[in-house]
Simulated assay, not measured.
Amino acid sequence: MFTDVQAVLFDLDGTLIDSAPDLGAAADKMRTERGLPSLPLEHYRPMAGAGARGMLGIAFGMTPEHPEFMAYREEFFVNYENAMTERTVIFDGVPDMIVAIVQAGLPWGVVTNKSSRFTDPLTAAMPLFATAGAIVSGDTTPHAKPHPEPLFEAARRLGVDPARCVYVGDDERDIVAGLAAGMGTVAATYGYLGQQTDVSRWNAHLHIDAPPTLLKYLRST
């Protein structure tokens, strides 16, 4: 149980929204345009939380050290930018969870490593985020997660003490950042998680296998 909670913060991809279909499609389009066979979404999904690095790794076995990586990454970005709301959906249970958080009088926000180039139009297009008091992207501050600064920035925007915040994410860097910020940390095990992940090693305060489960562990007073 988290006590005296004043705000709840969430990672975006793999925690609130399932963007893997659009991310995978952006990379798969690059494959098919080069005459390579399409790969099923199941290949891309586990690495969706790693963005371009993860998608290009699956699609082409390409690492950031590859001489063409930057060019491929920008092509991927353009593909994604042109179709980033076509297949993306909100995870089951998330809308009800957010409504309950708002009804409890708790401010909430998003802290993602996704660039504002994508975060801003994506969240603007989805009514879920209308009540978010802070949306912090990977380029909002000089540092991205696992550095705690984006979480501190979200707490500042919400006007709350970081120590009274809970941060929910589906990647180890989310938990590392949350712990470094002195926040309560929750591992969303329904998210992407990467490949061959042992979530128990993250040292999160809590694991949840469905969004509404979080509500049982929040106490604002």
Rank of each mutant, 00 (worst) to 15 (best):
F60Y: 06
M62N: 10
M62L: 12
P64R: 00
P64I: 05
E65T: 03
P67W: 05
F69M: 03
M70I: 10
Y72N: 11
R73Q: 15
E75D: 15
E75Q: 15
F76Q: 02
V78K: 13
N79Q: 14
Y80V: 04
N82V: 02
T85V: 14
R87Y: 11
F91L: 12
G93P: 12
D96A: 15
D96R: 07
M97P: 06
M97F: 04
V99E: 14
A104F: 00
A104T: 03
G105N: 11
P107Q: 03
W108I: 01
W108L: 11
V111K: 02
N113R: 02
N113E: 04
K114F: 09
K114V: 07
S116R: 11
R117I: 05
R117M: 04
R117S: 08
T119F: 02
D120M: 01
L122C: 09
T123C: 14
T123M: 08
A130E: 15
A132K: 06
A132W: 05
G133Y: 02
A134Q: 03
I135G: 10
V136Q: 04
S137V: 05
G138D: 11
D139C: 06
T140N: 06
T140H: 10
P142V: 00
A144Q: 10
H147N: 15
H147Y: 07
P148T: 00
E149L: 13
P150T: 05
P150L: 06
L151S: 01
R156I: 04
R156W: 02
L158I: 06
L158D: 12
V160A: 01
P162H: 00
A163C: 08
C165K: 05
V166G: 11
V168L: 13
D170G: 11
R173I: 08
D174V: 06
D174G: 13
D174T: 08
D174A: 09
I175Q: 03
A177F: 06
A180F: 00
A181V: 05
A181C: 11
A181M: 10
G182H: 08
M183P: 08
G184M: 09
V186G: 13
A187G: 13
Y190K: 05
G191Y: 00
G194E: 07
T197D: 10
D198M: 02
R201A: 15
N203W: 03
N203K: 15
